[in-house]
Design a binder for these strands. Sequence first.
DNA 1: ACAAAAGTGTTGGAGATACACCCATGA
DNA 2: TCATGGGTGTATCTCCAACACTTTTGT
Lengths: 244, 244
Amino acid sequence: MQNVALNKTVPNASAATFDLSVDNVVFGFDGEKLQVLLIRQGLPGEDMESDRFHMAVPGDLVLPEEDLDEAADRILSTLTSLKGIYLKQFQAFGAPDRVFDEKDKEWLTRFRPNPDRRVVTIGYYSLVSISEYRPKPSSFASRAEWCPLEDVPRLAFDHNAIIESGLQRLREDVLQRNIIFELLPQKFTLGQFQRLHEIILGKSLDKRNFRKNVKRMEGVVPLDEKQEGVLHKPAQLYTYRKPD
Amino acid sequence: MQNVALNKTVPNASAATFDLSVDNVVFGFDGEKLQVLLIRQGLPGEDMESDRFHMAVPGDLVLPEEDLDEAADRILSTLTSLKGIYLKQFQAFGAPDRVFDEKDKEWLTRFRPNPDRRVVTIGYYSLVSISEYRPKPSSFASRAEWCPLEDVPRLAFDHNAIIESGLQRLREDVLQRNIIFELLPQKFTLGQFQRLHEIILGKSLDKRNFRKNVKRMEGVVPLDEKQEGVLHKPAQLYTYRKPD
DNA sequence: ACAAAAGTGTTGGAGATACACCCATGA
DNA sequence: TCATGGGTGTATCTCCAACACTTTTGT
């Protein structure tokens, strides 16, 4: 926060100005796969299905008087009309060459007041239960869609890298905090719960051992209810209540 | 990275510009206590010992073409003339009211080209073995000094909070990665090693159990050397070599 | 001799791992 | 009846926590 090397009281002529944005990696779980929420945004007059759309993680510039967490929350809630979603800042991305693709530059020219300005973005990840939120199929020129993690296409800017490191951070955090329940629907089966663990941790777990651990977990309570309409033995449903 | 709610192609009039800085929480271990590197910077003509100095964590504005990690490294190496120090980005601080103290505002007026501009800072922490670096006692108008964590005074801006969350993050990271050795001198005793663990984890450990764990650790190798000049039984010295 | 930290083993309990078969449902 | 995931118990091993006394040096 101060000029370390240069012991001068003269304003530093080489000071840069930055735009600041927040990008939000929204993870969702549908009972089978881990998904990410992507935004497909066409330039006006363009076909949404065309090759020239802009695909990215939801994000926006931070407003002049806005806190970073606020910005992340605003972006998410305008997009999904869901409030109170779990949100976590995980990393700032500030490489000077974050924007190098011509298509990205063109997009900035259309949507940004200062398209040439260097922009640093703060990465957040957030967790949503897909069964409790399905994005509206379309809204004007932009459209949100779930995309399975393994099928994520080439995205704008450095968004592929942002997703990657968001996922890495999620992996680390899951072991520490009780955030995994944010991804589950209110009522879930132990099968779903185990699958989610396996996906996030990236390894398969023993069913019986997993269930023993769940029994020892606080907050996971069985309901008087079973799955219906499945083509196998219906599973016991569970829910999560925050302990204390 | 795009205007989510506002489906407009018109530049957003409310876009803000930011200054971006990097602040570096440098942790050091002297064999006894965990310390932080602080910068004492006087306004010109002021007594360094006076009450009106500016005390802060080392930091600076990010240069126009500079990557964030580069900036952190530059700040640290101009300050300590040490290269290759362990550096880790841990958190962005961007509250709109980060700068509210009158003294801080005054300081910005003297040292910053755009003192009123909102500034967001990226927090890094870094780890240094104190015995391998003692800051030069003074350099012109600024001075770096080690300060034991528990004695850190009221600092500029939100730097107390930055140190606090840097420490918290260090605690989490230590359990996962082999970074703790960055804080130790090249040759260390198991006593120092244990004390360092105890400080970072914030609890005391059993000596025999700790030493059993060390034996199971990869990379910690005993040397043919003992402590000298201590007023008790001299300890075996160890060193750390990265496995593989 | 004394002070101060170094060094050293054993035991009991808890948690992790490995492993295989029957069950309920819908098609 | 078949395919699909649901559901269950035991034995072993490894890791963790608790615990006290002797050793070596400098003063």
